[in-house]
Write a protein that binds this DNA or RNA. Structure first.
Lengths: 351, 351
DNA sequence: AGCAAATGGGAATGCGCTTTCCATCAATCC
DNA sequence: GGATTGATGGAAAGCGCATTCCCATTTGCT
C-alpha cells in the first residue's frame, strides 16, 4: 500500500534505477528518447511520486524555508508571511511555519526544529526582546542559530539582528527604519497638533516598540515639544485596549486633547475601541496614530493615520536575501532596503 | 563544515550507531545509564543535531502537516492557520504552508508537493469551486489526493468535500454549516428590515459563497420575503468594493433602503468602503451584514453584523481529525462539529 | 580502416538514521 | 552447577534516491 519507488518504476521500465532517476528528475544527463518515454510511462502507470525526503537526503538540500513569527493570525505577520511564501514559491521552495508567541525560548525551539529538518534557510520575523528575563533564552537562540549557520544554513532576520549573534556567513538582516519613520511621524504630527503627546507602546524591551518610541520622542524633541508620556502594554490589540482604558479615565478629567501614538496599528485599534467604549471619540477627543498600515485596517473609521510599511515586500526581500548565493554581498536585485511612508489620515485631523 | 552525524557521535562516545540512536532519540530500548551519559556528552560536545529528514526516511513518518489555503494574509485563512498550527504543535508536528490563490490547479500542485514530501497529513482550507473551467483541475486534484490517501496519507478538508473524491480511508471532512447559518441570519435580518435584500456574493460556483447565498435566500423565503438580488464579484475585499460600487449608483436613484448581505466579512468591508466613497453611510442608507466575524474587523465602525465562526477551532479540529488514528470513527474528543452564531450589531440597526 | 572521443546505460556507493537480528553476559531457576 | 531467561550492546540491512565510476557502444576523424 506504500507509495511506489523509483526502483519499481525502473524495474517495470526495464532499466536501472540510475536511468530512471535521470529521466524522472532533471539530471545533467538525459537518457535517450525511447528509454525516457518507457520510464515516464512506467512512472505514470504506477502513480509514482518521487520522495522528496529521500531526494533531500541524497543531495543534501531540502528545498525548505523555515519561517518564524509570533502569531500567524496577526495581520502584520501574515502579510510578511505572504511575501515569504511568494519568494519561496518563486525559488521553488516550500515554507515551514512556526509560531512562538513572541518568546525567545519559542524562537529557539523553532530554530532547532528547522535546523533538524535541515531547512535551506530560516526567516525570523518577530521582534527581538531585550528584557532581562529573556537574556538566557536569547543566548540559547543565538547559539542555536550560530551553529545552524556554521553548518551551512542561511538566516534572514527582519528588523533588528539577533542579540548575541556575531556576523557570520549566511546570516543577513533586513533593516526596517522603525526609528526614523517614527521620527518623521512625530514631526508631521507635531506640526498639526498643539496638545500633549502620549505613546501606547509595547512592553519595555521589545526592540521594535522601543525603536518606534525612541524615534517618536526624538521627532518631538526636534520639534521643540516635550517628551511624550509612555504607557507600556502588550504589543497587540488587547494591549492597546488596555492602554486606551487607562488613558480614557484621565482624558475626561483633563481638558487637553492629546495625540496618542500607538506602537502599531492593532494596538491603535485597541486604543480606539477603549476610548469609544468610554464615550470618547477619535479624532474629536483625542488624535490617534498607529504604525504598519495594516491592509485590513485601512477601511476603519476614522481612517487611521499611520506609517506604511511594505510588509509583503519585507517578507519577500528577507527571504530572497537569505537565499542569495553566499557569494558576493547582497547588492544584487532591487534590494534597495526597506522604506516606509507616513500617512496622515482623519484619525489625527485637527479637532 | 557540515553538521555532525550520529555516526560521529557514536564513534566519539565509543559506541555503535545503534546505541547512539537509542539514547538520543526515544527508542523502546534504553541503554544503560553510563553509556547514555557518554553518548549525550559526545552529542553535546559535537553540537549534534539529528537529521529529521533521515529519520523520516528511516521510519517513514515525516512529522509534517501540509496546509493549503487561498491566501495566508486573508484573516479568514490566517485564523484557521493559527488553529492548525496549534494542533500541529500539540501533536509534535510542523506545518508546511502552501497558497493557491483559490485555483484548483494551485491546490493540485500544492497537494502534489505535499505528497512528494510524504506529509503525514494534508489540510485543505480553501473553498471548492464548481465552475466549469475548473472541472479538469478538480479532477486532477481529486486524483492526486486519492492516490495520496491510498498511499497512507491522511486528508482533512474544511467545509465541503473535494469534488470527485470518493469516501476513502484517511479522508475526513469538517462540515461548516454555512447554509444553515446564512438561513438563520436571513431570518433574523428579515425580522428587522422591511426593504429589499441584496447579496454581494463571491463568484458563481464558489462552494462556500454558493452555500451562504442559498441559505440566505431560503431564510428570506421562509420569512415570506422575495428573493434577494445576487451580485457576483471576487470573494475578497476588492470584490466587495466592486459590488458596493455597482450598488451605490442605484441606491441614490432608488428610494428603498436595502439590506446588503456580503458573502464574507472582508467583502462587507469592501462594500462599506465603496458606499462610503459614494457618500452613502451604513446603516443609515443601507443595512450591511457579513459572515465569519473576523477578529480584526470587530472594532470596525459601525460594528458589523455577521455570523461568528470559530475559525481557530475549525483549524484545530480539522487537523486533529485528519491526524486521528485511522482506527475507530472520530467520535473521540469534543468533535461536536462546528457551529456558528448570528451576531446582529449596529450595521444592520433600524435606520 | 583504425583510433580517439564522445555517448548512453548500469553497478555500486553513500546520504543519516532506524530497526531487526545476533551475540554476549549476567542473573535466575530447578 | 548447568541450563534458561532477560537484558544489553553491536552488526548489518535497509529507507528511497542521487551520483560517481565504469564499461560497452557509437560517432567522428585522419
Amino acid at each position: 500500500m506504500a507509495a511506489s519507488t523509483l526502483a519499481e518504476v525502473a524495474k517495470l521500465a526495464g532499466v536501472s534505477p540510475a536511468t530512471a532517476s535521470r529521466v524522472l528528475n532533471g539530471s545533467a544527463r538525459t537518457p535517450g528518447a525511447g528509454i525516457a518515454e518507457r520510464v515516464r510511462k512506467a512512472a505514470e502507470s504506477l502513480g509514482y511520486v518521487p520522495n522528496l525526503q529521500a531526494q533531500a537526503l541524497a543531495k543534501s538540500s531540502t528545498g525548505l524555508i523555515g519561517l518564524i513569527v509570533h502569531d500567524i493570525a496577526d495581520p502584520y505577520f501574515s502579510a510578511i508571511a505572504r511575501g515569504v511564501q511568494e519568494a519561496a514559491h518563486q525559488k521553488r521552495r516550500m515554507v515551514l511555519l512556526a509560531t512562538t508567541d513572541g518568546t525567545p525560548a519559542g524562537e529557539k525551539e523553532a530554530a532547532a526544529a528547522f535546523a533538524a529538518r535541515r531547512a535551506d534557510a530560516i526567516v525570523i520575523a518577530g521582534s527581538r526582546s531585550h528584557r532581562a528575563e529573556d537574556a538566557a533564552a536569547n543566548q540559547d537562540l543565538a547559539a542555536e542559530l550560530e551553529r545552524y549557520c556554521r553548518n551551512g544554513g542561511r538566516l534572514g532576520v527582519v528588523g533588528q539582528g539577533i542579540i548575541g549573534l556575531p556576523e557570520i556567513d549566511g546570516y543577513s538582516t533586513l533593516p526596517v527604519p522603525n526609528e526614523e519613520l517614527a521620527r518623521q511621524l512625530a514631526t508631521e504630527l507635531a506640526a498639526g497638533h498643539d496638545g500633549p503627546f502620549v505613546i501606547a507602546a509595547g512592553p519595555d524591551g521589545l526592540a521594535t516598540s522601543d525603536e518606534r518610541v525612541r524615534g517618536f520622542q526624538r521627532g518631538l524633541a526636534d520639534a521643540g515639544r516635550p517628551a511624550a508620556e509612555v504607557l507600556h502594554a502588550a504589543f497587540n490589540r488587547d494591549g492597546g485596549f488596555d492602554a486606551g482604558s487607562r488613558l480614557a479615565a484621565r482624558l475626561r478629567a483633563e481638558s487637553a486633547r492629546p495625540c496618542i501614538f500607538a506602537g502599531n496599528d492593532v494596538m491603535a485599534i485597541g486604543v480606539a475601541a477603549a476610548l469609544r467604549g468610554d464615550g470618547l471619540s477619535v479624532p474629536e477627543d483625542a488624535a490617534l496614530a498607529g504604525f504598519d498600515d495594516i491592509e485590513w485596517l485601512r477601511d476603519l473609521q476614522p481612517e487611521l493615520s499611520t506609517v506604511g510599511l511594505p510588509l509583503e515586500d519585507i517578507g519577500r526581500q528577507v527571504t530572497l536575501g537569505a537565499l542569495l548565493d553566499s557569494g558576493a554581498d547582497p547588492d544584487g536585485a532591487a534590494s534597495a532596503g526597506i522604506s516606509g511612508t507616513v500617512r496622515l489620515r482623519r484619525s489625527t485631523a485637527r479637532a
